Computed example of a mutant assay.
Amino acid sequence: MEEFLSFIADILEVDKNTLTLETSQDDVETWDSLMQLRLLGEIEAKYGVMIPMEQISTIKKLNDFYQYIKES
């Protein structure tokens, strides 16, 4: 989980210590709709998971992304 948060912090360009799995889009200024798509692509590439495009709008917190990684 710590490695995941570090990875996400680099993408979002924020301090890792400001992120938890409960961090949502509303908590991070740089996390807009374009960043949502970038996070999707980066996570799929790094962790070898497939997140269905129809699910992207339901992802609101970092934990939502993390669940796909845990399930793979």
Rank of each mutant, 00 (worst) to 15 (best):
D64A: 03
L39S: 01
L19R: 07
Y66M: 08
L62S: 03
N63V: 11
D26L: 12
I59V: 09
G41S: 06
R38N: 12
K46G: 04
S57M: 10
L39D: 01
T18L: 08
E13L: 08
M53F: 13
M53E: 10
Y68A: 10
E2H: 14
E44N: 02
M1N: 14
N63Y: 08
L19K: 02
D64T: 03
I11M: 08
Y47Q: 08
K60A: 06
I51T: 03
D27G: 02
T30Y: 01
L40F: 09
K46E: 13
M53L: 12
S24F: 05
G48S: 10
L21A: 08
S24Y: 08
Y66L: 05
E13R: 11
I59S: 01
N17A: 11
S24T: 15
T58K: 03
A45F: 09
M50H: 14
L12R: 04
D26I: 03
E42L: 08
M1Q: 15
M53K: 08
L12N: 00
Q55H: 14
M53C: 03
G41T: 03
M35K: 14
D64G: 03
L39H: 03
Q67W: 02
K60V: 15
E71S: 14
M1Y: 12
Q36W: 06
E44L: 06
L19C: 04
I43R: 00
S57R: 10
K61I: 03
E42C: 11
M53W: 06
E71P: 06
G48D: 11
K70V: 15
D27E: 12
T18I: 10
K60P: 00
D27T: 01
L34S: 12
K61Q: 12
Y66A: 07
E13I: 07
P52N: 11
D10T: 12
Q55I: 02
I11A: 07
S24E: 13
K16P: 07
K61W: 00
I43Y: 01
T30V: 10
M1G: 13
M35E: 04
D10S: 10
V49Y: 06
Y66C: 05
E2L: 11
F65V: 04
